[in-house]
Amino acid sequence: MSPRSRQWLAPALVVVGAALVCAGSAWGLFKAPPEVFMGEVQRIMYVHVPTAWNAMLALSFAFGCALAFLLTGDWKWDNRLEAALEMGVVLSLLLCMQGAIWAKPTWGVWWDWDPRLTTTAVRVLAVGAIPALRAFGEVPGRRAVWSAVACVIAFADVPIVYFSVKWWNSLHQAQSTPETVSSAFHWPLRINAFGILFLWTGLVALRARLSALRLREETAPPPPAEAAAATPAQGAW
């Protein structure tokens, strides 16, 4: 648990992040001029690109936590892993939704098997399965190791998935999602990027606290009245 003095940091990050996202989005929606070829639809990039960066960051952080837990066995990394996984799934799902909303007016279809978005969809499934795995793990130690191992393997798989989808699709698709934004429009992008960064960092910290509280409850010794009657817990294997 973070010390009393730093309890305010996470909520502050969330508030500041939210404010930045509002500001950046307002700028992108109202102040920035429409782009030459893509017209109004380009504005979606001001949230889509920052979401993409941050989804990648959040899942990379999850991978870091998984490694850290496997190497140190310190429970705070498992708490953070649980939080980061949830955040990563939320951001990746959001990314897929934004991508579909962007694709419809641009290509006429909701989904065009773009390698980046398809890899994101696969990542959502791969990473989203880990909380399901956790739900069935009764022994905290084993559950934590399994989540970390599954996270490491999922992360190692991502580049392979990306390249295979890219080759698979290259015969059918000449275009890819253009993420180039001309320099005049950088500000909304940067503001949103930092906004979402602060937002997810704060949310992960708060979510990790939730995990820590739940873990404490799970591993707490039973109250004295029940301890006398209780039998020692059996291992799951």
Binding site: A129, L133, F136, V165
Partner: peptide, 13 residues
């Protein structure tokens, strides 16, 4: 249900 859920996304390549 858990095994396919975990395995399928991984073996997409």
């Amino acid at each position: 249900a858990l095994l396919p859920l975990l395995l399928f996304p991984l073996v997409v390549p």
